[in-house]
Design a binder for these strands. Structure first.
Length: 485
DNA sequence: TGAAATGTTGGGGCG
DNA sequence: ACGCCCCAACATTTC
């Protein structure tokens, strides 16, 4: 195919990023209103350090296929390009002689760099770049303290958000979308080979999820009709279907935060609706922090944690990754993550705390594993979550809040359904011993065919000793801090 | 969006 | 009747 064709009519370009939807898409809606024909594109940039990990590549493949279909049904064509985002978008824009490029504004360091480079490339050709704020409910740049500073405490941040105005109604898919084909060719999705081939490890993930805008809307509707009504308490129960499971859909932008807000913020907003909206608030807060502190994803926000005596323990990290720590709740979570690309939030907190505090492994190593295995991995949420657990972040859990995996299991998986589901080798143990097999009597282990150290590991560390070690390490880091100041 | 150690209180058993 | 002890239950402090 040649690329010399000149478009017959004036065009604009909509660049899809982490916003793989047609409804409530402010950039698409703006483009649909400006009277120009619309070319659409997506760029897969795997040259950046926050390129999608394995689980997200699988999801991206399915989601792009869904978006391509949705666009094709409306007479369009999603052009696929691979490489540096700014260069690719600019080349598509120039070849199609577009007047404007529309996209949603990013909050990540790499996203912002791409926008700046793109603006420069386009300006040199007289093309306008129009950035739209549509990835958050409230523009994270605009929310400030009374003295104009960015906010470091969640509650103050969320109060400022809520005070700043009401959240708008989600936009429908534009009724008229004058899509046209690009005059230059793109890649085929299959050629990107985003799906695992040999071995195909995505079987369980495929069964657990329906990527794409339609799947996202169905999930939101099912959540709003059911679990939302008991969300405040049930969201803490990994043994039940109490959470929204919207995170991967939100992270790819298959559903907008505004649509999620609208599903819970309507009439009779009670404690359950408020609790869900508050979780959307943490997503906003994470974007706010990363916007104002672009180093947040990479280094500890609080200085004393940059000199923390972390351990370089590849063996411990590997056991944590594989779900072989000997603490059933943690191992169940890590195996749920590996098999489904997702882990219940309560278990994420306990498992993350265990890596950082019981094993003293730097939070970045845990964040990196989550990045590769979570289908919902999001740069801001991931870093803010890990730093919250580690105690190194803004408005973080105090360092001495060390989760006791046994107590957490007894409290949030009281009947052991969650642990039994993911650790079948322990499933025959009576519930009273299930969460702490190393304390079970020999007879119970024998009856359940559990041989500690063989069929299931002995705990990698003893809880009380590990807790004491973590507190001592923190005291050392803090002590160093005050003397070095 | 903790847990453990420590302190306080009050009922009941008992000499 | 009274003081003493034990200890569970609850509250506070500390990590």
């Amino acid at each position: 195919m040649t690329s010399s064709a000149v478009p017959a009519e004036p065009r604009c370009l909509v660049w899809f990023r982490n916003d793989l939807r047609l409804s409530d898409h402010v950039a698409l809606t703006a483009a649909a209103r400006n009277g120009l024909s619309i070319v659409t594109c997506y760029v897969y940039d795997d040259t950046v350090d926050d390129a999608p990990g394995g689980a997200r590549r699988w999801w991206l493949h399915a989601s792009l296929r869904a978006l391509s279909t949705d666009i094709a049904e409306r007479g369009g064509d999603l052009l696929l390009r691979r490489g540096k985002a700014a260069a690719q978008v600019a080349s598509v824009a120039v070849a199609n002689a577009v007047a404007e490029v529309h996209c949603l504004k990013s909050h990540t360091p790499n996203g912002r760099i791409a926008e700046a480079e793109l603006a420069k490339l386009l300006a040199a050709r007289g093309i306008k770049l129009v950035l739209h704020a549509g990835d958050t409910l409230f523009d994270p740049e605009q929310i400030r303290s009374g003295s104009g500073q960015p906010l470091k405490v969640f509650t103050a941040f969320w109060n400022a958000c809520v005070r700043s105005g009401s959240v708008g109604t989600p936009l429908p898919v534009p009724s008229k979308l004058p899509f046209v084909r690009s005059v230059v060719p793109g890649d085929s999705l299959d050629a990107w080979a985003l799906e695992p081939k040999s071995p195909d490890w995505a079987g369980d993930i495929r069964a657990a999820w329906t990527p794409g805008e339609a799947g996202a809307r169905a999930r939101l509707a099912a959540f709003a009709a059911g679990p939302l009504h008991a969300y405040r308490a049930e969201r803490d129960r990994p043994d039940r279907e109490g959470s929204s499971r919207l995170s991967p859909h939100l992270s790819f932008g298959e559903v907008s935060p505004r649509a999620a807000w609208a599903a819970a913020a309507g009439r009779n907003r009670g404690e359950n609706e408020a609790a869900f909206l508050r979780e959307l608030g943490w997503r906003e807060f994470a974007r706010h922090l990363v916007w104002h502190w672009p180093r947040f994803p990479h280094e500890s926000f609080r200085a004393e944690f940059r000199r923390f005596p972390w351990r370089d323990d590849a063996a411990a990290l590997a056991r944590w990754q594989r779900g072989q720590t000997g603490y059933p709740l943690i191992d169940a979570g890590m195996r749920e993550l590996w098999h489904t690309g997702w882990m219940h939030n309560r278990v994420r907190m306990v498992a993350a705390s265990f890596l950082v505090k019981h094993l003293l492994v730097p939070w970045q190593q845990g964040a990196s594993w989550f990045w590769d295995t979570l289908v919902d991995a999001d740069l801001a949420n991931n870093a803010v979550g890990w730093q919250w657990v580690a105690g190194s972040g803004a408005d973080a859990a105090p360092y001495f809040r060390v989760f006791n995996p046994l107590l957490q299991a007894q409290k949030f998986d009281p009947d052991g359904h969650y642990v039994r589901r993911w650790i079948p080798e322990l499933s025959a143990l009576p519930t009273e011993f299930l969460h702490d097999p190393s304390a079970a009597p020999e007879s119970a282990l024998r009856t359940a065919s559990v041989v500690l150290g063989q069929t299931y590991p002995v705990p990698i560390v003893a809880h009380s000793a590990a807790r004491a070690r973590a507190l001592a390490a923190y005291a050392r880091a803090r002590g160093n801090g005050s003397s070095a100041r």
